[in-house]
Design a protein around this nucleic acid. Structure first.
Length: 237
DNA sequence: GTTGAGCGTT
């Protein structure tokens, strides 16, 4: 038998072609640490993080699995990230899973190149994403008529992300009636773009018609409210 | 201690 089974395929092996268009290439910044994040391409659109967890978890403990999706449509983008705890596992998983048929599709597994991005950064990326395809309008491209809030179909925490190892088996109504009022379905922390349409302006169900039947000015500019009246209280007679 | 709008979606 020649050679020892598989080749570890060290990532620094194929860096000979200078294929890095960006000078600052290197996973994460420190070239010392091998990348632990894998980018899995060609995923099925109905693939779930947990689906990836099983096959990919065979190579080692996973730190995280995430499938980004379109922010506006909420549909999966067809790729995902699998982060391992040990870079060695990631390397092996990439080697083993790359090209594998997963759910009838050939997966393409490569090392993630960029670091995690935060929503704020994403916002700016939005601009370069379409290359200014949407004119200079700031409104997001409404692919469909369903706002992003539609994701919460039935399972909200169906994400693979397990924040608490201890899964609470409490009953569904573990919420007090009092807290319930706070637990409205609008508990989104980031508050997505609520339609920048220039039409929806009725924030208040009751829009006061006009407080002061004055001329043109609808809103009467309140006079300055200085904390104190002008120097007038000092009247030394 | 972190980030869920994560780059590579046909």
């Amino acid at each position: 038998m020649r050679g020892r089974s598989y080749t570890p395929s060290p990532p620094r092996g194929y860096s000979r072609r200078g294929r890095s268009p960006s000078p600052r290439g290197r996973y994460g910044g420190r070239g010392r640490d091998l990348p632990t994040s894998l980018l899995v391409r060609n995923l099925r659109h109905d693939c779930r993080p947990e689906d990836l967890r099983r096959p990919f978890g065979e190579f080692g403990p996973l730190k995280d699995v995430y499938l980004p999706r379109d922010y506006h449509t909420g549909e999966p983008r067809g790729f995902g990230f699998v982060q391992y705890v040990d870079p060695a596992d990631a390397a092996e998983a990439k080697y083993q899973m790359d090209g594998q048929i997963f759910h009838g599709r050939e997966l393409t597994v490569v090392f993630a190149e960029e670091n995690r991005k935060k929503p704020v950064e994403m916002r700016q990326r939005e601009r370069t994403r379409g290359g200014g395809r949407y004119d200079r309008r700031r409104s997001p491209p409404r692919y469909s008529r369903s706002p992003p809030l539609r994701y919460a179909k039935s399972r909200s925490r169906s994400r693979d992300y397990t924040p608490s190892p201890k899964r609470r088996q409490y009953s569904r109504s573990s919420v007090s009636p009092q807290d319930r009022r706070y637990s409205r379905e609008r508990s989104y922390s980031r508050s997505p773009p609520p339609y920048n349409g220039s039409r929806s302006r009725s924030q208040s169900p009751r829009q006061v018609q006009s407080q002061s039947p004055s001329r043109g000015r609808s809103r009467s500019p309140k006079p300055r409210e200085y904390s104190r009246e002008p120097s007038q209280d000092l009247s030394p007679r």
